Simulated scan of single mutants.
Amino acid sequence: MTIFFPDYITVFSASFSQNADWSSVAALGKERSNVFFVIKLFKDNKHFSIFKSTSYVDVDAKARELSEFLNVPYKAKAL
């Protein structure tokens, strides 16, 4: 894995599906879907996801703190 110093940080919303065949919700269907918010670091045309949560407030706070710590811009997106 190559780690790079980012040009900027942003937060995305993403939907993740999980196979539910062997979980406690297997009776409800074959898949379940969750919406997460993800912190991504961008360098040129490459990106690296570093944190995800279902809480936008938590992700936004961590992204702002990381942006300040690394001294790189936080480009907030309207979600």
Rank of each mutant, 00 (worst) to 15 (best):
V59A: 12
K62E: 08
V25P: 02
P6N: 14
K62S: 01
P6S: 15
N71S: 12
D60G: 05
F48Q: 13
N71T: 02
K30W: 01
K40F: 08
A27E: 12
K52T: 05
S17M: 10
R32F: 13
T54G: 08
I9V: 11
F37D: 00
T2L: 07
Y74E: 07
K52V: 04
L70F: 05
M1H: 11
F36M: 12
W22E: 10
V57T: 05
D58P: 01
A61K: 12
F36G: 01
D21V: 00
Y8I: 08
Y74M: 06
R64G: 01
Y74R: 08
A20W: 08
N34Y: 11
P6M: 15
R32H: 12
L28P: 00
F16V: 07
A20D: 14
R32T: 09
F69D: 03
E68P: 04
D7H: 14
A61Y: 03
R32C: 04
S53R: 07
T54V: 06
A61T: 12
R32L: 04
V25R: 15
L70C: 01
S55E: 09
I39M: 11
I50D: 03
L70E: 02
V38K: 09
N71H: 04
K52I: 06
A26H: 10
A14I: 09
W22F: 13
A63M: 03
F48T: 10
L70V: 00
L41Q: 14
V57P: 02
A14V: 08
F42N: 06
F51W: 04
K30C: 09
A76P: 06
F16M: 01
K30N: 14
K30Q: 14
K43H: 15
P73G: 09
P73Q: 07
Y56V: 02
V38L: 10
K62G: 03
F36Y: 15
D58Q: 13
S33F: 12
G29M: 09
V35A: 03
R32Q: 11
V38M: 12
H47A: 09
N45K: 14
K62Q: 07
K75E: 11
S55N: 13
S17P: 00
T10A: 13
G29A: 14
Y8K: 15
N71E: 02
L79N: 08
M1R: 09
D58H: 08
F51C: 00
R32V: 08
Y8W: 13
F36D: 03
S24Q: 15
K52C: 01
M1W: 06
L66I: 00
Y8V: 01
E68K: 02
K75N: 14
V72D: 03
S23H: 10
